[in-house]
Structures are given as C-alpha cells and as structure tokens.
Amino acid sequence: MKTILVPTDFSPLSLKALDRAVDLAIPVQASILLLGVVKYPEPILMDAHAEGSWDQDMDDAFEERVESIENRLRCLLDQPKYHQVPISAIVNRQMSTIGETIASSKADLIVMASEGATGWKEKTTGSNAERVVRYAKCPVLIIKNAEPIAYQKVLFPTDFTNTKALHAFFAFADVRKAHPHFLTVNTGYLDRSFDDLEEDMTELAVDLKLESYSYAIIDAVSEEAGIIRYAEEINADLIALYTHGRTGLSHWFHGSIAEKVVNHSEVPVLTLVQQ
C-alpha cells in the first residue's frame, strides 16, 4: 500500500478519518493524499438589469471557494500530529458527483467518513460513501461516529462463494490482529444445510490459518439487516464486506449489500471489490 486517499470537508468526522489514515500509513510507510472537492455551482437566476455577467460572478465565487479550501488544507496539515507521514493536499474542481470523483482517484486505499443515508435520501441521492463503495476499484474504509481506537472484533459476512476476498481482508494488519467473527445470514434461500455450512467454515479457518474464530448462522429478513443486527449484538468494531462492483442495469436489479450496510450501519465498514 503506497497511497491512501482521504476526502475531507473539515467536519469532525472527516478529521477522524484522516487520523485513522495516519495510523494505517505509519507502519507501511504509505503517503496520504488529502482531497478537498469543490463542485461547480448550478446556474442561478439573477436580475437581468444587474451589472456584470452572472457567469463571471459565479466563476469568481467558485475560485474564492477553491482558494479558501486550499488555505484550510494548509492550516490543517500544519498541525504537528500530521507530520508523521508524507501528506499532500489538493482541491479537485469537478462537475460530476463527489462520490464518483473520489472513486475514480488512483489510490491503494480510500478512507472516508460517512453518516450514512436513510429514508427518502437513500432512495433518491444516497450517500457519497455509497457511490464510492459502488465505483471504487480499491479497498474503501468507511469511518463512522463509533470509530474505535483499535479493531478487536471484525465481522466477516460470508456465504462461502468467494473466500479469495476474505484472504485479501487479512492483508490489513489491523484486521489480522482482531478476533474474526464469521456470519452467514439465512433469508430463507440457503441451498445448503447448517452442517454443510459448519464444515465449510472449518475448511475456511484452516485455509486462513486461524487459531481462533467465531461463527454464527442467523435468520433475518434480508442479508443487510442480519449483518447490521449481528454486528450490534457482538459489539463489532468493523464489518468487512466484499462488493460485486456492479453498475448500470446489473446494479439496478441486484443492488449491493455493502452499499446498504454502509448507509445504515453505525459500525465502520471495510469493502473490497470481488474479483
């Protein structure tokens, strides 16, 4: 891991994401790219008799906003606690959605904050974190308000159809140090017996070289509901999920469990794209 991307809007939660990125960067000697994103404003109606061009007024205001964010980034990185790792800061001028801009950035890991999205917001605009999880080609760590100091319990939902992704999670030092809790959610469509699933889990533990682990099979109305509920029951510090990376019609019909968990979970979420 060479580069960690951290988007920021200077909120306390996004600064917590930066602190976590620093913790992750130090042991692997990675650098951090701190990203401020400025979206060009939508045109607004102005008095036809007003002096000057509304285009010029909008451009001037936009550049002032960019300059203001650049100054805030410099002041932020002047703090001694951010001198432990190489951190560079840029302001991205963009016309597309913020989530797509972040996801398209070249990085080995994205660490970002999210307060989630529920109700009408989820059905219409969703959250920036949801879009990043959907489009990103690298792992994404979503920081929540309940971000712990260290990950002691990590929840791995699995149906045993892609254990390669689970191997990739253990490449993260913080994940390796934690106690792994594996979970299969039964929504009524399991095509294997519980005994078969237990046997799959035993084989997976041997494959991952795990000395200790926990495994549970629970019933729930949906996979995301079961994951969120069980994470709360065991007081998980992190949920590790792989995504399908679906877009277009495929995403419309199938959706993504990871995106729904990101939107509704109070627990931090780490996602990887399923290969």
Rank of each mutant, 00 (worst) to 15 (best):
G119A: 08
Q56M: 08
E100Q: 13
L73F: 05
S88V: 07
P27L: 04
S114F: 03
S127W: 00
A30T: 10
E63P: 06
M58F: 04
L77V: 06
A48I: 09
L45V: 09
K123H: 11
N71I: 06
R65C: 05
Q79L: 12
S88G: 11
G36M: 06
L45E: 11
E51M: 08
R72P: 04
S104F: 07
S96E: 14
V28D: 02
A50F: 03
P43H: 02
L33C: 07
M58E: 04
K106H: 07
E115T: 10
V38S: 08
I26P: 03
N71E: 06
S96H: 15
L109G: 01
D59F: 08
P27A: 07
N128W: 02
P41A: 10
P43E: 04
L73T: 03
M95C: 11
R74F: 07
V132M: 01
E122V: 04
L77G: 01
T101S: 12
L45P: 02
K39G: 06
T125H: 06
R134P: 00
T101G: 07
I98E: 01
E67H: 03
V132T: 08
S31G: 15
N71D: 15
K106L: 10
Y135G: 02
T97Q: 14
D47P: 01
A113T: 01
K123W: 07
A30R: 15
T125S: 11
M95D: 15
N92Y: 15
S53D: 08
L33Y: 04
F62K: 02
E67S: 10
D108M: 07
I26C: 08
S53F: 02
T118Y: 10
S127G: 08
V111S: 06
A103C: 12
R131F: 01
N71W: 03
W54V: 12
Y40Q: 13
V132G: 02
Q84R: 11
S104L: 11
E122R: 13
E100Y: 05
D78F: 11
E64G: 13
A113N: 04
R72D: 15
E64R: 14
L109C: 09
D60A: 14
K121V: 12
Q29N: 15
V111A: 04
P41C: 11
S53P: 03
G126E: 02
K121A: 14
A50I: 07
T118L: 12
D47C: 05
D60K: 14
Q56D: 14
D57E: 13
R134L: 00
P80Q: 13
V111Y: 00
V37H: 10
V85G: 09
V85C: 11
G99C: 04
L109D: 07
V91W: 06
S31M: 11
Y82L: 05
S88C: 07
V85T: 12
A107L: 00
E51I: 08
D57I: 14
K106P: 00
R134I: 01
V91F: 05
I102V: 12
A107T: 03
H49V: 13
E63L: 15
M95F: 14
G99I: 05
A89G: 12
D59H: 13
D55G: 15
